[in-house]
């Protein structure tokens, strides 16, 4: 096995262990405890928090910023596709399975589009004064690594010779994911849960 594949696998293992540890800490802390008398539909509100409340018409962060919202959505789809592809490519590589050219090409085109969304978001962060104010190295590193993995996945599908670069970037991403703001992949779900709990307990949600 090539050193860069070993490095990527080791990084993935560290990533999984680190997220498992953070997840365990959340679970260990337990569910929220509220001693006031509940007034609403808690499970309905938690479900609402993950579903309808996420719809663009319910959030100013979406409906006032539709281009960014759309770019973000595409970008996140690209991230998940890249992560799934990483696992699939490894399996195919070791099993000696060839991905049909048309499928490779289609996925590559998709990933180039999603990575463009990522670059667009990065550019916005660099250009906009207010966003620059909010940003630190973590914000740029997180975006760059996540965008690059999408682009490199596409390149790897089209040009297998880029394999070492692809796996090195994958390793960097896996190491960074549980450390940088990329860890919101875990905390997003927890935040939605707490929000649903808060509004549900008091009867504000479901709307």
């Amino acid at each position: 096995m090539n050193w860069y594949i070993i490095a990527a696998l080791a990084a993935l293992l560290i990533c999984i262990i680190s997220f498992a540890f953070q997840f365990f800490n959340l679970i260990k802390a337990g569910a929220p405890r509220d001693l006031s008398e509940k007034s609403g539909d808690l499970s309905g509100a938690i479900l609402y928090s993950y579903t309808k409340a996420m719809m663009p018409k319910h959030k100013e962060s979406a409906y006032l910023h539709m281009p960014t919202y759309a770019a973000g959505l595409i970008y996140h789809m690209g991230t998940f596709l890249s992560l799934a592809l990483f696992v699939a490519l490894l399996i195919f590589r070791f099993a000696g399975v060839e991905i049909p050219g048309i499928i490779s090409l289609s996925i590559a085109v998709l990933l180039i589009i999603t990575s463009l969304s990522g670059f667009g978001i990065l550019l916005k962060r660099i250009v906009k004064k207010d966003l620059r104010y909010l940003s630190g190295p973590d914000d740029y590193i997180s975006n760059l690594l996540t965008t690059m993995i999408q682009l490199l996945s596409a390149l790897y599908l089209l040009f297998p010779a880029t394999e070492p670069v692809y796996f090195v970037f994958a390793a960097l991403l896996f190491l960074w994911m549980p450390v940088g703001k990329t860890k919101h992949v875990l905390y997003f779900f927890s935040a939605r849960y707490h929000l649903g709990y808060f509004y549900g307990w008091r009867g504000t949600w479901p709307e």
């Binding site: 802390a29 962060s61 006032l64 703001k181 905390y187 707490h194």
Partner: peptide
């Protein structure tokens, strides 16, 4: 405080997208 799941969550969740500004 490691026993406060809400605290741990909200300390780690913001992605600094800035989309809350107009709210």
């Amino acid at each position: 405080d490691k026993s406060d799941t809400k605290l741990i969550t909200h300390m780690n969740a913001c992605v600094r997208c800035g989309l809350c500004a107009d709210s």
